[in-house]
Design a protein around this nucleic acid. Structure first.
Lengths: 256, 256
DNA sequence: TAGATTGTTAATCGATTAACAATC
DNA sequence: TAGATTGTTAATCGATTAACAATC
């Protein structure tokens, strides 16, 4: 156990290259996709300019937070006017890396893996599923996703080859929990440094690899926690019919 | 737009009933399911006692954070010894509300909805899918999930009836983005106060309703951001082969 | 110029971390 | 008693918020 406390490089907190890249706070990065999505909807709705107050309302955050977040990217607004929707959307997409195509490898072609391949929200943001792998002979060879761009399920053997070709940038783990760590190790060994884990397992990665996790059961458990609290301490005065504090005019523009 | 600044009840920040319930910080609540899962695995592995150092390692957090988190629930450890695995697992599950059964209603029986119904991680934590709804006549009536406990897809009409029966506690939105807000409104109107949204849409709920969101595309975009950073500023000195800082002995116990 | 709205500052709040006294 | 490990304290860090000077 003492090995867990081994001499690491003393995490030099300010690792930032003093060159170009000002660091963007993680909390801000996590919200940028939301801003980008809403801006995209505004473009579709023909809106040309938004104020921070309006955009924040449509995104479900405070305008102060929105402006603070955007200030980390640069000064892309105009005082007294607001933000040019197209321009801001572009700046955010550039910051997020959405202006270039990304290849996604999915390991596990069960229910979840199949749903992910079929998910249209990926392609629409520049993510292409370049490979799906499974070890079950009964699914290997089957075509998944859009019949116009079918993605065949391959056997695990071919994983390293495909990643080695360089078109894959992000690995997605959609296997049972038991296989997750081993699959992750293979993805990393093959050269991937960005991993999204859907398996209900805590897995470990080497330093320098970015691992994110989506755990469906965790979300439900957190909701159960709140629901239990609510049952123990019912909201005094009953449910107030008070409805959404979200910018309504913009909401209408978006839904139009 | 000025209506968005309307006089709200001045969010009385300390709403806590001074009665029983000490508030648990949200950041802590979000980690409890992870602790619980690992503890369950330790039970299965026959481990009877863990130290905070060991458990933290297996969960991927620092021992200081783990102890701080647990201190919000009570004093369930023994100085000089550690934590009784079974006892701690029980305390956490009680805190999370996992000691009682929860009914889940899923709206949307597309790829994702079907994957959710089939997901075994729900039932194993006390969540039962009590209803699945869709508006597509071609899927209505079809049986989903485990053939031993099939869940028929019902038409939307029956949503309010089912929720009204009181067996449903949590609503899950697995529809296209366009339908998400309307579906959410119906779930809330029917009486649900805990909602999990998988649709790629920003939706609004009345005060008092707990809404959580899982956005697959957002996770990929955050990974793309980091991947882009990594490509612009490659890790000096190449990839260090340094592997996982995770408790290995416990990891072996868990995987045994 | 007057009105509107940004970008930034300073204050507050919450979460993380390190260290250690309490205690098994 | 000596060694181990918890639960808590105090210091640090990062994120949020409110307010406003800058400026269109």
């Amino acid at each position: 156990m003492s090995a867990a406390l081994s001499p690491r490089p003393a995490l030099s907190a300010l690792d930032e290259d003093a060159t170009t890249t000002r660091a963007i706070p993680p909390a801000t990065v996590a919200r940028l996709p939301v801003y980008h999505r809403v801006l995209t909807q505004l473009i579709d709705a023909g809106v040309e300019t938004v104020s921070s107050e309006e955009l924040a309302g449509a995104c479900g955050v405070s305008s102060a937070k929105l402006r603070k977040d955007l200030s980390h990217l640069g000064s892309y607004g105009t005082r007294g006017v607001g933000y040019d929707v197209q321009f801001l959307a572009y700046q955010i997409s550039r910051e997020l890396g959405l202006t270039q195509p990304w290849g996604v490898v999915i390991v596990g072609a069960g229910n979840l893996g199949q749903a992910l391949v079929a998910y249209r929200g990926f392609a629409s943001r520049g993510f292409a599923v370049v490979g799906v792998f499974d070890c079950d002979p009964t699914v290997i060879g089957r075509d998944l996703g859009d019949p116009d761009h079918p993605v065949p399920v391959r056997q695990m053997d071919e994983l390293e080859d495909l990643v080695g070709q360089g078109d894959a940038h992000i690995g997605v783990i959609a296997t049972p929990a038991t296989a997750a760590q081993e699959v992750c190790d293979r993805l990393v060994a093959a050269g991937l440094t960005s991993i999204l884990n859907f398996a209900p397992a805590v897995i470990a990665v080497p330093e320098g690899v970015e691992l994110r996790k989506v755990d469906l059961a965790v979300e439900l458990q957190i909701l159960a926690f709140h629901e239990q609290r609510r049952m123990e301490h019912p909201p005094a005065g009953g449910r107030t019919g008070t409805s959404t504090p979200v910018a309504e005019s913009l909401g209408e523009a978006i839904n139009a």
